[in-house]
Design a protein around this nucleic acid. Sequence first.
RNA 1: GGCGCGAUGGCCAAGUGGUAAGGCAAAGGUCUGCAAAACCUUUAUUCACCGGUUCGAAUCCGGUUCGCGCCUCCA
Length: 468
Amino acid sequence: MITFYNSLHHKQQEFKPITEGQAGLYTCGPTVYNYAHIGNFRAYMFEDLLKRTLQFCGIKVKHVMNLTDVDDKTIRGAQAAKLPLNEFTQKYKDAFFQDIKTLRIEPADVYPAATDHIPEMIEIIKVLFEKGIAYQAEDKSVYFSIAKWPRYGQLVHIDQDQMKSGARVSMDEYAKESVADFALWKAYDEDDGDVAWDSPWGKGRPGWHLECSAMSMKYLGKTFDIHCGGIDNMFPHHEDEIAQSEAANGVKFVNYWLHCAHLMVDGQKMSKSLGNFYTLRDILEKGYTGREIRWVLLGTHYRQSLNFSFKALEEARTALQRLDALKTRLKENQQVNDNNQDQNVDKLLEDAIENFKKALCDDLNISAALAALFDLLRELNKLMDDGKCLGVNAKNALETLAKMDTVLAVLEPDHDDQVPQEIQQMAEDRQAARKAKDFATADELRKKLDELGWVVEDTPKGPRVKKK
RNA sequence: GGCGCGAUGGCCAAGUGGUAAGGCAAAGGUCUGCAAAACCUUUAUUCACCGGUUCGAAUCCGGUUCGCGCCUCCA
């Protein structure tokens, strides 16, 4: 049984897909006007964990992630860069795909772009007009009338009267019948430059929320299983998506809504003015690797705000090295010929996988899942210290780790850890010196290797060279 | 003002009624030429605070304090 905390009902519920063994997943993707920051990636990482967990449980996932390539920010950005909109956004689409690869995030099946789905969006607006829910205001923009849709507010309970006056009501929205009404179609404005499409209501561009309704419907159907995003998208974005989709289609939009909490940096909200604003690239430049960043983003439960820090990255490095060391030892043990399957090892591996799965199926309890992994690590090391877990047993252990890694995706080292010839030579020279009891030379060589970023570990089978 | 989330050891972080997982850090030990790695041991009678329910509460209820988020286009 898999359970998730469903934002729609404010409680944890058993996940029951519409079609047995399959899941339709829609996740709000990036607005491609800049490099995505690590807060954005926290959300994509949570979605990756969700998807991999479903797959781990044998569910086939169809994953759709939109690319918002037309909105105020992309238009402004393209103008500032003096580029056509599509050229400008292409750069950031490319960067996004590069970044998710660095973080080992499994790509979605479809990445629909808003600008490729204008006709689909126009269709929805037509239907809403026919139903009398959409209206065109004096400013020529088309809005969704909340007053005509009493079910508005399923996700977030907003009391219009209690809204803090003047909170963030922009000045140019006086044309709407009600402040809560949201734009389906934004009438052309001179500031939009050459960005415009024709519609039955005149030149303009689609409202932001509409793309998700149109594209999720197109690729996943009118009702689908899971919709994800950051908690800040609950209102108004997701609320509006529900309203327009259900009003247009007359059926339930999404069965399970999952939202992840924010990422903080050193205990504070990430912001440019505080100087704690990081893109993935910023952190890579500081010498951290994709999987170290992945480890940190993955390590906190998705509904808990995640405190990102460089200390956490350092800790990630140490923890990952421990996992790497385990794999190295198992691979060495695998070389030993032993076909006797040890019952204790089998039991250990079974329990580990079971605990791991149980944890993830409980609303993606990553902490408990990692605990299962580390419990296994300790037990396997203990066995190997005693000269056990050889041959087929080591092979089975490696397979168990690989299975866990289909969800975690952190076990393979980032770099090719091939030891260069000269480093290998130095290690061999050191070993020769040790044999000759010339420890002064041996220690000096070890120090040199250390300075070059390599560590030598002496084992009964000879020295082992590893990247630091 | 309204709505929602959170407060667990030096740091990070599980645990939602039966007596505190895991990671990092630190100290001691085994091993080692010395290290490294690995393993063992130690580190919260206690879960922000005050009441209540209960045989029993970190877990449920009420209140208080503090922190965070959302309240019209920020993951």
